[in-house]
Design a protein around this nucleic acid. Structure first.
Lengths: 310, 310
DNA sequence: CACCTCAATTTGTCCTAGACAAAACACGCT
DNA sequence: AGCGTGTTTTGTCTAGGACAAATTGAGGTG
């Protein structure tokens, strides 16, 4: 009574597991095994939903459903991440303790304290180092903490929202850029994380590129329309670690087909680390690589520009 | 070859019509009628996808699928919105021509020009009037234009993204609020529009409330967790006109059940105009109503506080 | 021991076709 | 015009079957 049962649609929303998968698991593994309501429709008790969430989280860490679903409920709790987590290898030495303190502020839901700390770092370090030494590592750690269950969804949202604010504000103080290249920044449908895009925008804008931020979750065909309407030189996409790896190549191939050849397609974010290369698409595994590529682009451009004007 | 066919999953993503619906329409109405690939799976040509989008748009305006699907392709183009569109009745007289000029900037994809104009208005009017006389009416008109097909998706995204930036920036300049009430602002899953939330936040923050912005698309259970963790007095949700009306009451009822009684649930946005009232939920059809409710809340609070302290 | 190849398994998504409840409509009555 | 009541429309659910893509494991080779 206090916690009513969930319809299959509600479970899909809350766990991210499709209806097809939920039914298939029930058929194959015998879990979840929901009750049935008066119409014979599945009614999932909240404890099963809770376990499904946990299973989903472990799957995102590389575990296989077959194993997880065979496991008794208690065994799930102390399952380690399966992919060896890469050691944090930021280019520069980061202030590990400072980061922990900032995460602690989020964990205490101290929004103002967190904002102030961010502002302070930004003022001290300047935008570029702020992004590379503070926001990116923080984002990484929040992702890890979320996978471990140490962060709740709403805590991750709070972190993202507040960090975005500070970044946007910093970007707004930059002089309006009207240079080349023109870069359209966005993400595909089902990818709602926009913090990575904002970090990229900050770094690109610092280099003098003109950024056209379109927010997240653009249909592929619309990305192509936008790129042409804005006469973009580059389309930059971001995939978070939460995005299902397996679907990334298909997205990239389709978008590559929809874009004119002369527009480059750049991709970055935590989700692209372990994907096979796609022809005509530049994949960057770190922000720094993206910045380097931008410098290279501008160099090549000015060189060819010189040739042309000669 | 230039435009490859779409899988049913791709069509679902791009149109927002579920796979079930797509198959059902095919069975019942004979449209869409996709090709089949080598595996016997549906392969939708892009013109059918285009028509589906158009149909979806008209449905969101109140047309019924049965009629639309029976109609020949050409007849769709000049179908008027079915719900009588309410005349713009902003509390104050708005600068109609000014708004049109700003929309024109978006239409020309002049991001910088649009940003500058916004900043200018903000400086001239102050935040409150800026929200009520500029951003809200603009947002309304963009919504209408989008429904008519005068705005493309990416143009709407550009508008939203740029407007959000200016608003956030303005909010950031306000002194950090630590007063009462504490208001958690967010939206439900599948509702990705956050501009309304930002407008509400601006107005609430101006009144001295402490706003906790959690971004969009929070699972209901997480909203409840967040509200308790932040010791919120009020949870404020926003539904855009694009959100399927029929599902709103179910969401509200479920969230109301998940929230403790003493936390109020406030709802606003273009999507809530024509829904039946839900017990325990305050529905606001305009930003102004929300602000008034907030004043009332604060008054009641201080009154009871006085009583208590006596 | 590392590396490659091929077969077996696992897993998600798609398929058809039927049922039914809730919403929207249309009709007739007051 | 306003209000109940029957009818149609519409979306979502159900069941089980099929299959391709991804992943794993085995066996062989350098």
């Amino acid at each position: 009574m206090s916690t009513p049962n969930f319809s299959i649609a509600a479970v899909e929303r809350d766990t991210g597991l499709s209806k097809d998968v939920l039914r298939m698991w029930e058929r194959r593994y015998g879990f979840p095994l929901p009750l049935r309501d008066a119409n014979g429709e599945r009614a999932y008790p909240s404890d099963q939903v809770e376990r499904l969430r946990q299973i989903k989280r472990l799957m995102d860490q590389g575990h296989r459903p077959g194993k997880l679903l065979a496991l008794p409920a208690e065994a799930l709790a102390d399952l380690a991440p399966r992919y060896a987590r890469q050691a944090y290898s930021e280019a520069v030495t980061v202030d590990e303790q400072g980061l922990s303190e900032m995460l602690a502020l989020i964990k205490q839901h101290d929004a103002n304290g967190y904002l102030q700390t961010l502002q302070q770092r930004l003022a001290r370090l300047g935008l570029q180092r702020f992004v590379q030494d503070i926001v990116a590592p923080l984002s990484r750690r929040v992702g890890d903490a979320w996978e471990d269950g140490r962060f709740k969804v709403f805590e991750e949202h709070l972190f993202t929202e507040l960090s975005k604010r500070v970044l946007r504000q910093a970007i707004a103080t930059l002089p309006p850029t009207t240079g080349l290249p023109r870069i359209v920044l966005t993400s595909v449908p089902d990818e709602q994380h926009g913090l990575g895009l904002l970090m990229a925008e900050a770094l690109f804008a610092l280099e003098g590129a003109e950024c056209i931020p379109l927010g997240t979750q653009m249909p592929l065909i619309e990305i192509a329309h936008a790129a042409q309407a804005h006469r973009a030189d580059i389309v930059a996409l971001s995939f978070s670690t939460a995005f299902p790896h397996r679907h990334i190549p298909a997205h990239l191939e389709q978008l590559r087909r929809l874009l004119p050849d002369e527009i480059e397609l750049w991709v970055g974010g935590g989700g692209v680390s372990r994907i096979s290369p796609v022809p005509g698409v530049n994949v960057f595994s770190s922000l720094d690589d993206g910045v380097k590529a931008l410098s290279a682009w501008m160099k090549a451009q000015s060189a060819s520009g010189t040739v042309r004007s000669t």
